[in-house]
Amino acid sequence: MNSLGFAKAPAATRVVVAMSGGVDSSVVAALLKEQGYDVVGVTLQLYDQGLALQKKGACCAGQDIYDARQVADRIGIPHYVLDYENRFSDAVMQDFADSYLAGETPIPCVRCNQRVKFRDLLDQARALEADCLATGHYVQRAIGAGGAELHAAADPTRDQSYFLFATTQAQLDFLRFPLGGLPKTETRALAERFGLPVAMKPDSQDICFVPNGNYASVVERLRPGAAEPGAIRHVDGRVLGSHGGVIHFTVGQRRGIAVNDQATSNEPLYVVRVDPAKREVIVGPKAALACDRITLREMNWLAGAAADLPVTVKIRSMSKPVPARISVSGDCAEVIFDAPQFGVAPGQACVVYRDSHVLGGGWIRRNEAASARTAA
């Protein structure tokens, strides 16, 4: 077996590398080329290059396409740029806008992996007669008793498994993640050893198509007139002020809540929930964010449903996994935390783990039962 798990020489193994123009995917291409694999680089143009050039740290447009081509030339591999702008808009950006209008906090990176990179790009890799598709994600792929498994990265500070929970078993069979066992410092060192022009390039930001981190401006551009004003209401029913649109708020948010301090005794206020139908933002003290259970939709299981089993779950990309139990019903599930959690936002993902093994996950759904518990 070669290092990618195929019973043939590296030279007889074709690998398509998804090259975003960043250091991680560039190192993947260089490593596999050094190991003797038949490497083909593919970069996706996902959104308007003019918009991308306004933002440092963006990926998949403008300067990053140029950087990916420079790396491919440096290591001597063929490189293709595919225009997926319309697909990305339809599958990711429109969903992003609709989620904010529904009072949710979306994760477009997951949708991009689910609907574009691990679907359309994977199909393109097969069309190029590749044996696998390699990416620069910091996750690990292991072979278990039931086949390929998805595991968290060896370096917990770089782990990206949260963003890959929607990967299917068929996709995981075809995917490879060469950086999953490395710390970022080693990746940077490899980039320097290979003489890659992106060796010191800053990491890309999570949401590539949002200029300057202004999510609301993107939503307003996609949905003109979306930012309708409304009331800021305390959980006890009092109206404390007004806002310029629910798209500016997310559950757990503390900054940017403009209210009359005299009406709140200067207590710190957090967004407890967003009601788009009434155009209201409900706020309250931190205690009002406490939540002992959540309901999930669109469950994706990579290792069989973990019904009524003790597991750990992540409810935000940067949070640590916390103990919980899960009750499964079709493609939905209820997660019961061992201890209350704070600031659980609808539209975010809840990813289920057993140790480092990613069992699956789903999207946190906004419903009255969960909202009532949150506000209790």
Rank of each mutant, 00 (worst) to 15 (best):
V71L: 09
V92C: 04
K55R: 12
A72P: 03
Q63N: 09
L82E: 09
G57T: 00
A72Y: 05
K55I: 12
Q94Y: 10
K55Q: 13
P78F: 04
R74H: 01
R74P: 03
I77M: 05
Y66I: 15
D90W: 03
D64G: 06
H79Q: 06
A61N: 00
A58I: 08
I77V: 10
D90K: 12
C60F: 11
M93E: 03
K56H: 08
G57P: 01
D90Y: 09
Q94V: 10
A58M: 04
E85K: 12
G62E: 04
E85T: 15
R74I: 00
H79A: 01
G62Y: 10
I77E: 07
C59V: 08
G57A: 02
C60M: 08
Y80H: 12
D64A: 12
A72T: 06
I75A: 01
D90V: 11
D83G: 07
F88K: 03
A58F: 07
D64W: 11
D95R: 12
Y66F: 15
A61W: 03
Y66D: 15
C60S: 07
K55H: 12
A72V: 01
Y66W: 15
A91D: 00
K55M: 13
C59S: 07
I77N: 06
D64R: 14
Q70R: 15
A72C: 06
Y84M: 08
V92Q: 04
D90S: 11
L82S: 05
D95S: 15
A91M: 09
G57C: 02
Y84T: 00
L82I: 14
V81P: 01
I77R: 06
G76Q: 00
V92E: 01
Q63F: 09
G62S: 11
D73F: 11
F96Q: 08
K55V: 13
P78M: 05
D83I: 14
Y84D: 05
R74G: 05
Y84L: 10
D73K: 14
A72W: 05
F96W: 11
Q70E: 14
V92L: 00
M93W: 06
C59Q: 04
P78D: 02
Q70T: 13
C59M: 10
F96Y: 14
F88L: 02
M93P: 02
V81A: 07
G62A: 15
V71A: 04
I75D: 02
A58V: 11
S89I: 13
